[in-house]
Amino acid sequence: MTLFKIILPLITLVLVALPTIRVSAHSDKPHSNKQNENTASLNRQLEYEPPAPGSYRLPPIQQAVDGDVIDADGREHHLFELMADKYVILSFIFTTCSDLKGCPLATLTLNNIRVTLEKDPTLAEEVRFLSLSFDPEHDTPEVMRQYTELHGFDDARRKNRWRFLTTTSKNNLQPILDGYGQYVVREYDSKGQSTGGFSHVLKVYLVDPERKVRNIYSTSFLYPELIINDIKTLILEKAEFQ
């Protein structure tokens, strides 16, 4: 049942996508504000040359926040312990998310960054990925492990390059969400009944080794090229001050 819940977004995607492709391949419909953003970001081709690493600054936005988490193997950690002294890309997800422009996009982008970085082992060693569930009731360590296996991320997980995390309770989760400003609400229908889903603005955080948040990406900025250049910019900045 759990596995079905995880794979449901994928099945939905395939079933929905195929007929829609036929209908909308030549569609020229206007785009909503939100859809405009999503369309731009899901088309992985940047429409511009990203600014070169080191040609700009990323002033610290806020201090990163620590918290008690559990990895997909059921081991307890502090977030800061997992961040160590690396550049960290942190995303908040829930495994049953069926909004393609939400958690799946974040996970896809993190994976693209990871794969790209692997071509440069020295750089890859400087970067860690953390994906933390905000649905601890459903997303147990076992579910998170299945999620990584299902999507082919288990190798990165075993190398501890990409941790898929959850929490033991809402009490442990909420301070982390509050600390990063990740607002999440359960979705309800017009009768006030929970739909089982969550409403949230997708945010992915870039944290430096001093545990300062240096950039926050929404759907419009989830381009691997852009995020990798940001990481390189921070590395150059660190070298400049050493």
Binding site: A17, V23, S24, A25, Q35, L42, L100
Partner: peptide, 9 residues
């Protein structure tokens, strides 16, 4: 899916 613009619906 993204490449052929289905998310523009």
């Amino acid at each position: 899916a993204a490449s052929i613009g289905i998310f523009s619906v």
